[in-house]
Design a protein around this nucleic acid. Structure first.
Length: 423
RNA sequence: GCGCCAUUGGUGAAGGGGUUAACACGGCGGAUUGUGGUUCCGUUAUGCAUCGGUUCGAAUCCGAUAUGGCGCCCCA
């Protein structure tokens, strides 16, 4: 038995990191007053086809599609935005007071060739703000991303921003690019020739020709923005500066998904490997309309959580909450086991984190097990303890031993643990 | 979808055709102990990703498959 290609099992330190990361995200979202949304992991296929765009590879050849038992065309979500947009339309949330600020965290699915930082089932954390087409929200969304990295202590990140303009700007620019490259197309790489036909904007991203003279002198989108788009982009930059957020304007970045308009951005980390873009996003003012809803603008980003963890690992950042066991309890022989079980149950009901010996190990093994589990206190139950109604409690740090009557046990432990937390 | 590389126990690994698959950590058991983290002893892969092939003989050479990694396409 083997897990499917491109999936992973998460446990041990990694799952501790994951749980702690969730907590950080939740508290971060509270700071910005964004609300958690949980939408389905799969949607009717058309949600992604009309939402993300037919032409992007993600939808045209990387989705997990299947027909369910009722004959419906279903797609496992390859990204989070389209489903959230569908949720907004279906529940008419645009009728409530705007902006609607939402966040999500969950699995996404893309049928791709896996490598480090790229899986077929992967986790994204995303943020979206709908209803207000104001550059201040673009800037806020970017600031969330920057703040997230700050909160988890990840350094060496770089924010690149650009504007792909509105529909009109983009059409003008596309024509200019085609015009510019047409005479020289034969000098470019094979991939670029394909992009020339399919999506000329992507040519600027080319790994092979990217640094060549012809690319450097290519027209840049900023010169083709309409007055309105230009002003929007300038204000985004101003607000970012007002928040003291460092960024670079990079006219070469274009997003892969069709729904973006105006602001686009990505955040890259200085880590090895080609999967160094940790998060990316932008504004999408036509998405809701494309999905059959009213004209509602939106802006947001998604972070690749697996990639983020990879970066943490490379930088040796241990993002975990310290979790230690309050009590490890054991009995000196099999005869006291039933008593032990009942005592442990009582302790747990009183709010202590307790583990116990299930196999009646010898005493030495029990002590080393208590150490391994990082227990703060050890409780020992023997014949004498039962007969005289007390417990032997050992402080595992100071090695001090106490004989405490059953009645006083809870109070004693409460007080001791309080002292522990203060230290 | 394409190209290149890799895969040995619970983990890190050595071994690159010759019979018992090294070493370390971890796990389990024991010695001693109504009070331990040290030490000592024992044990822990009939098997080297899977399936075929070559050979007297394969973890070792060859092929296919699977999975992982690097790069590309694409993208978070």
């Amino acid at each position: 038995m083997q897990k499917p290609k491109g999936t992973y099992d998460m446990f041990g330190k990694d799952s501790e990191t994951y749980l702690y990361f969730n907590k950080i995200v939740e508290s971060l979202m509270d700071k910005y007053n964004y609300k958690y949304f949980k939408t389905p992991t799969f949607e009717l296929s058309e949600v992604f086809h009309s939402g993300v765009g037919e032409t992007t590879d993600i939808v045209s050849k990387e989705t997990y599609d299947f027909v369910d038992r009722g004959g419906r065309n279903i797609t496992l979500r390859p990204e989070g935005t389209a489903g959230l947009a569908r949720c907004l339309i279906e529940n008419k949330l645009y009728a409530e007071s705007l902006p609607l600020k939402a966040w999500y965290l969950g699995s996404m699915f893309r049928y791709e060739r896996p490598q480090a930082g790229r899986n077929r089932e992967f986790t994204q954390f995303g943020v979206e703000a709908y209803g207000i087409d104001d550059p201040s929200i673009d800037a806020e969304v970017i600031s969330i991303l920057v703040n997230l990295f700050k909160m988890i202590g990840l350094t060496g990140i770089k924010v690149n921003i650009n504007s792909v303009g509105d529909k009109e700007s983009r059409e003008n620019y596309r024509n200019a690019l085609v015009e510019y490259f047409k005479p020289n197309i034969n000098d470019l790489c094979e991939d670029c020739k394909v992009r020339f036909e399919k999506n000329p904007l992507r040519m600027l991203d080319c790994k092979i020709d990217g640094e060549s003279e012809i690319m450097k002198n290519a027209p840049i989108i900023t010169d083709y923005l309409t007055e309105e788009s230009k002003k929007h982009f300038e204000l985004v930059q101003k607000y970012l500066s007002d928040m003291n957020i460092d960024f670079d304007v990079n006219p070469r970045i274009v997003r892969g998904l069709d729904y973006y308009t105006n602001t686009v951005f990505e955040v890259e980390a200085d880590i090895k490997g080609s999967q160094n873009v940790l998060g990316a996003g932008g504004r999408y003012n036509n998405l809701i309309q494309n999905l059959g809803g009213p004209s509602v603008p939106g802006v947001g980003f998604a972070v690749g959580v697996d990639r983020l963890f990879l970066a943490l690992k490379e930088k040796e950042i241990d993002l975990r909450e310290e979790k230690t066991l309050d009590i490890y309890a054991f009995a000196t022989s099999e005869n006291e086991k039933d008593y032990l079980i009942s005592l442990v149950n009582t302790l747990r009901l009183n709010g202590f984190d307790v583990d116990m010996d299930y196999t009646s190990r010898n005493m030495k093994n029990n002590f080393s097990r208590a150490d391994k589990l990082d227990a703060k206190f050890i409780i020992i139950i023997g014949e004498d303890e039962i007969k005289n109604e007390y417990v032997t409690i050992k402080d595992n740090k100071t090695k001090e031993g106490f004989k405490i009557s059953l009645n006083e046990m809870i109070d004693f432990l409460d007080k001791k643990l309080e002292g522990y937390n203060e230290n």
